[in-house]
Amino acid sequence: MALVLLVFFAGLLGHLLWHGAAGLSWELFTAPPRHAGRDGGIAPILVSTGLILGVCMVTALPFGLGTAVLLAEVTQRRSWTGEFVRRSLDTLAGVPSIVFGLFGNAFFCVTLGLGFSIMSGGLTLACMVLPILIRTAEEGLRAVPREYRLAAAALGFSHASTVCQLLLPAAVPALLAGFILGLGRAMAETAALIFTSGYVDRMPASLWDSGRALSIHIYDLSMHVPGGDGRAYASALVLIGLLLVINAGAMWAGRRLTAQWILVA
């Protein structure tokens, strides 16, 4: 089974490399798109993607961590509130991303007056990744051995410092896993962004500008631009590369943080 997965992944990567490698060049990373993206590079699109993900994570992380702590440490496991929040989150996690896109368009773009902007896109993505972020963080916190809590209580730690000093650091690998899952979903998102952060392929001047995300660029090139396939493959290769780099980086950071914490403790 694992072998089948491996072959599948290798096949996908091979296909992308075969079609996209020719399009990889220094210009791809430094130049703006020309001729509707058939020529030139994807520099403004990379910047927009980074900004959208930044807004998304900066907004989602505090909410996500807060709610996870609430669910795992404050409410009782079987309590009515906890169960209600959990059910809501699981339902939200299964909602198709286009629904988030339409909600983001109606709420952030129109009601809040943010218009088509990186801000609208980032906030919409934040709503979308919150369920994943919260549920993985909650499981991570629950997985911390019960002895830690007992030891902290025996030492006279307050509940707040038990959570901040002990449980959160101990749950770092799980928190990072949630972060990566969320980031991965956000990065590959098209439907939630097309109506929120939009389609403009210019270098964004601020968070209030519309900016095209990498996944939308790939979608547009392959679906609406005759002859855009070459650059679409190259952009897809960049997207996969970024995902791999983020995964590897987060794993490394996870190991490092855990090691540090063990040293301190």
């Binding site: 509707a36 993206g37 097309i194 389609y199 403009v200 519309s210």
Partner: peptide, 29 residues
């Protein structure tokens, strides 16, 4: 129209060059 968007975006870029300070934001759907 997503059919028109790439064309109008290209026209927008040319218009921007002729009118400095103006920005044309094209969205699809």
């Amino acid at each position: 129209s997503s059919t028109m968007a790439p064309l109008i975006a290209a026209i927008g870029k040319r218009f921007e060059r002729r009118h400095p300070g103006v920005r044309i934001d094209v969205q699809t759907g």
